[in-house]
Amino acid sequence: MTSAGTGRRLWALAEPLHALTYFADEARSAGEAAGLSGFWSTYFALRAAPLGPVGPAVVTASFYNFAPAFVARRVPAVWDAVTPEAALEARLAGVDAAVRRVLGEWAASPEAAEAAGLARRAAEVVDAPGRPLAAANAGLPLPDEPHLALWQAVTTLREHRGDGHNAALLEREVSGPAAHVLVAAAGRVDREWLQKARGWDDDAWSAATDELTGRGWLDDGGLSAEGLAMTTAIEADTDRLALGPWRALGDTGCDRLGELLVPVRRAVVTAGLFPDRNPIGVAPDAA
């Protein structure tokens, strides 16, 4: 039976390809050409576009771990600059240009087509209930070009995983800022970077720290034994809830997709398009 570890490895392998949407110069240029200005306006417009012209409350709820005020500074203003349809076109244009620069002829290769076919098989069976970002992406048409079809499929799969992660946090009553406090306490990403990247101020961070300390999850700013057990359980639940599409693909299909994604991941990381300091949760040297 396909293991949860297989799903985690495929996420780690595929995430740099998805993240071109945020970190590639071509993605930012495509956003600017569509009418967007600045990294975060582009980020929110391109990621939220599958949901339609939603307001800040829906984006905050769906993305889960951003400060509401941080979101509200960009949403719904981004929809005055660009329609969701234009944002969807911009994100594909940016990924297309970035992949062609970084991976060259691979974009039209048999390997790209094979990887797209495998990822599509998994993405077609994502379970949508309770997973708004996965459902919204699964409802988009798959592009004809293999590299863009692969990108769209792995994007659906990573949002499916993210929706499940949010459910695992919610089930344990871990708020957005508390989730980041736990990540910082585990030493995975530093506090300053997380606060900057997700918009939580010192008061929100301190309140979350106090709440987690009161629950016995923190000890002198680090994870307590109970905190380590709970964060491990959250990650295990995230892996379990993400497993369905990979089971449908099967061990052979998963292994082959992993083989095909290794050089893609390596090329993106080598090109410097998956920065060391990022709040996504996958290290550049993972997988």
Results as ranks from 00 to 15, higher is better:
Arg9Cys: 03
Leu10Ser: 04
Ala14Asn: 01
Leu17Gly: 03
Thr21Ala: 15
Tyr22Thr: 13
Tyr22Leu: 13
Phe23Pro: 09
Ala27Cys: 13
Ser29Phe: 04
Glu32Phe: 10
Gly35Arg: 06
Leu36Glu: 08
Ser37Cys: 11
Gly38Gln: 03
Phe39Tyr: 15
Ala49Ser: 11
Leu51Met: 13
Leu51Asn: 07
Ala57Asn: 13
Ala67Ile: 00
Pro68Thr: 11
Val75Thr: 06
Trp79Asn: 08
Trp79Asp: 13
Ala86Asn: 03
Ala86Ile: 08
Leu92Glu: 14
Leu92Gln: 14
Gly94Ile: 00
Val95Trp: 04
Asp96Ile: 01
Arg101Thr: 09
Trp106Leu: 03
Ala115Leu: 14
Ala119Asp: 01
Val126Gln: 01
Ala128Lys: 13
Pro129His: 06
Gly130Glu: 06
Asp144Arg: 14
Leu148Cys: 07
Leu148Ala: 02
Ala149Phe: 04
Gln152Glu: 12
Glu159Tyr: 10
Asp163Phe: 00
His165Asn: 14
Ala168Asn: 03
Leu169Thr: 05
Arg172Gly: 03
Leu182Trp: 11
Gln195Trp: 09
Gln195Ser: 12
Asp201Val: 10
Asp201His: 04
Glu211Tyr: 11
Glu211Ser: 15
Gly214Lys: 05
Gly222Asp: 10
Leu223Pro: 04
Leu223Asn: 02
Thr231Ala: 04
Thr232Val: 11
Thr238Phe: 04
Asp239Met: 04
Trp246Ala: 04
Arg247Pro: 02
Asp255Phe: 08
Leu257Arg: 02
Glu259Val: 14
Leu261Asp: 05
Leu261Tyr: 03
Pro263Asn: 00
Pro284Ser: 05
Asp285Glu: 13
